[in-house]
Amino acid sequence: MACPTDRTMQSLAAAPTYALVIFAAIVVLLEVGRRIGERQLSLDPVGARTGIGAIEGAVFGLLALLIAFTFSGAASRLDDRRTLITEEVNAIGTAWLRLDLLPPANQPALRQLMRDYVDARIAFYQGLTDKQTAAQENARAMAAQLNIWKQTVAAVQQMPSPPLGISVLQALNEMIDITTTRSVALKTHPPLIIYLMLLALMLVSALLIGFGMAGSARRNWLHGTGYALVMVSVMYVILDFEFPRLGIIRVDQFDQIMLNQRKSMDEANAIIPTLIEPSLYRNI
């Protein structure tokens, strides 16, 4: 599955509707399986259930294994995305500090470009639910990246000892590289066939459970609806892990780290005059 697009957004926005449809389908298949089982029992009371245990064991085992791997993978990818947010903020912070190594005349313009770049990155992730906004902010961030790199290279070439500026270029390179890593992480999801297979196994298992419930005098709606609710909830949580900016499980709180970094840039700029004023007074 790709990075959120209009089609993906519409699908995820309709997730509650899909959940209700799947819930209803599981309940219906439970009843269908029960009726098939009752018919088989009426035709062959002794052999109707022969060999069913092995089939049920295989299907339920495969279902449990697929849920475990899918859930574990989604949770792992969520943790990776959170870690990458921290790594990008660290890279931006390092690059911001190393601008001090450049000639003073070049620093103001570069610092303003850095602020604009961080603003664009914040707006990009906050606007992922809107494809057009995300594309515009991503283009703005890429343009700022290019300008920062070009102006830094020019500043390093003007330095009396250019090797001192190498660490600045290295920090900027890491800041740029992490954007590619986060972009890949944003697009990394299991293939659609995995979710379709998981859904198919849920429906088949519902049919088998209904078949196994045949023969009872009364329908056990509590167990049937409980099973349907659990399966739908598991599927919903897995998708929530995969798209943590669209559902209940979110990484928005980790964006506060980036916001704090952006705030510190303004505070650092405001501190400079207060540091200079005492020397001015002494000179007077």
Rank of each mutant, 00 (worst) to 15 (best):
A2T: 12
D6E: 13
A13N: 12
A13K: 11
A15C: 00
P16S: 03
A19I: 01
L20H: 05
V21Y: 14
F23K: 03
L30Y: 00
E31C: 01
G33C: 03
R35Y: 08
G37C: 09
G37L: 07
S42Q: 14
S42K: 13
A48W: 13
A48R: 06
G51A: 08
I52G: 02
I52N: 00
I52F: 06
A54W: 08
A54K: 06
I55Y: 07
I55R: 10
A58K: 00
A58E: 01
L66H: 02
I67D: 06
F69C: 06
S72W: 10
R77A: 11
R77S: 14
D79Y: 04
R81A: 06
T83C: 05
T86D: 12
T86A: 15
E87K: 13
E88P: 09
A91C: 11
A91P: 08
I92Y: 05
A95Y: 05
A95C: 09
R98M: 08
L99E: 06
P108W: 01
R111S: 08
L113Y: 02
V118A: 11
Y125W: 14
N138A: 13
M142E: 12
M142R: 13
A143E: 11
A144Q: 02
Q145S: 15
A155C: 10
P160E: 10
P163C: 11
P163A: 08
L164K: 12
G165L: 07
S167F: 14
L169P: 00
E174M: 12
I178N: 03
R182M: 13
L186C: 00
T188C: 00
H189D: 07
L192S: 11
I193C: 02
L196K: 04
A200N: 08
M202F: 15
V204W: 03
V204S: 01
A206Q: 05
I209T: 06
F211K: 13
G212H: 11
M213W: 02
A214E: 04
N220K: 07
W221Q: 05
H223N: 14
G224K: 00
G226K: 08
Y227E: 03
V230L: 13
V232F: 08
V234K: 00
V234M: 11
Y236E: 06
D240R: 05
G247P: 02
R250V: 02
R250D: 09
R250Y: 04
V251H: 13
D252T: 12
D252C: 02
I257Q: 15
L259Y: 12
L259Q: 14
N260V: 10
N260G: 14
Q261V: 15
A270T: 09
I271M: 13
S279F: 15
